[in-house]
Design a protein around this nucleic acid. Structure first.
Lengths: 201, 201
DNA sequence: AATGTAAACGGACCACGGTCCGTTTAGTCG
DNA sequence: CGACTAAACGGACCGTGGTCCGTTTACATT
């Protein structure tokens, strides 16, 4: 028997090999570039591989699927946004009263979603939302609802508040029905105030 | 110049040729069969063509895309459902007071969506909801809200009520989080009662 | 019946996502 | 430093959705 790693450390799956890490980084960088140069649609897996100077198999080995890749690309911007919710300036970040934070959250999320609509869709593709992003938002809204003293099935109420901010809904309203974003924001705030059971400061 | 059709009738685009109509029907029948025998995933365009005894090009000529085909397949069941909302027995159909109808609508739609989740997704695919189905529901909810004397941006309020009944949301809750359907129904009714501003009979 | 034409047909063809597997290489151990 | 192994690599290959275009066919007009 060969000896297992001398430092158990934890039993993290053995860690990534240096060349693998380099390739992942190169691919991700290339992907980001392609996306914001030509849009999501122009990024094909084969072409990305070529650009990054690796074989197609490598792309799939690193990211599993186009969807997985897109999720990583999205993560870059999404992480910033989450940070500003968690620790940015009020009213989106902490410091403001919960109702103001909720309103700020809704508007900010609505605009962000619209901005990255294509990417979010590509990262979602088959319909299984990236657990990470969704659960972050659910938790946050749930937390604010708690602070507001809302009674009821909080997890599901949070989901209900988040649902109208999903890509398909917003895209339909903005791109097909040509509703102005301000109206959507106002309607969402109205919805939130009904759910909370009283709103305006 | 050749003479145009002798009976103008209306200027409907010349109407479908007999062979075309036959093929459309054969294809649709075959598609329905394949879907409820093997599930949505087993239906490939080429295979469908073969089954119906036509060329692949014909399938695309008739339905435009896989998505378009699926929309037609879905339409078969969806039409029945719409009929029962419009003219079926109360409380889903007319006759019951608006609040009871709204509750019945929510529960019925929730269960129906879950039942046809795959098909709805396949018919939606790129994310552009079939205008027909969506606008039917929006109109209906809007109508009920009006009857209930709800004030505000009705079209958007209706959308907000419909959003948590969308496939991705429900599938996430049921298949990933394993929440029981009854709880989803209860939460939706709660949401509706908040939006309406008082609910229980 | 013969003719003309717009529509329908079919299947070869293309692009893209995803898989497979034989080959190469990083990192480790003696 | 040489040997060994698990991991990474790359590109040929496959299935599927979708397009294209030369050929066939329904129907109307004479």
């Amino acid at each position: 028997m060969t000896s297992r790693p001398l430092l158990p450390m934890a039993d993290q799956p053995p860690a990534e090999r240096a060349d693998a890490a380099r390739n992942r980084e190169a691919l991700l960088r290339a992907a980001v570039r392609m996306v914001d140069e030509g849009g999501v649609a122009t990024l094909t897996m084969e072409c990305l591989a070529a650009r990054a100077g690796v074989g197609k198999g490598t792309v799939f080995r690193r990211f599993g699927s186009r969807e997985g890749l897109m999720a990583q690309v999205l993560d870059v911007s999404e992480r910033d946004w989450q940070a500003s919710v968690l620790a940015g300036p009020a009213p989106l970040g902490p410091g403001a009263p919960p109702w103001e934070r909720l309103v700020a959250f809704g508007e900010s999320r609505l605009r962000t979603t619209l901005l990255h609509a294509d990417l979010i869709r590509a990262a979602d593709a088959h319909g299984a939302r990236s657990v990470a992003a969704a659960s972050f938002m659910t938790l946050h809204v749930r937390h604010l609802l708690t602070e507001l003293g809302v009674q009821g099935d909080l997890p599901l109420l949070a989901t209900a508040l988040l649902a109208p901010l999903e890509v398909p809904v917003l895209v339909q309203q903005v791109d097909v029905e040509h509703l102005p974003v301000e109206r959507l924001v106002a309607a969402w705030v109205d919805l939130a105030s009904r759910v909370v059971g009283r709103g305006p400061a």
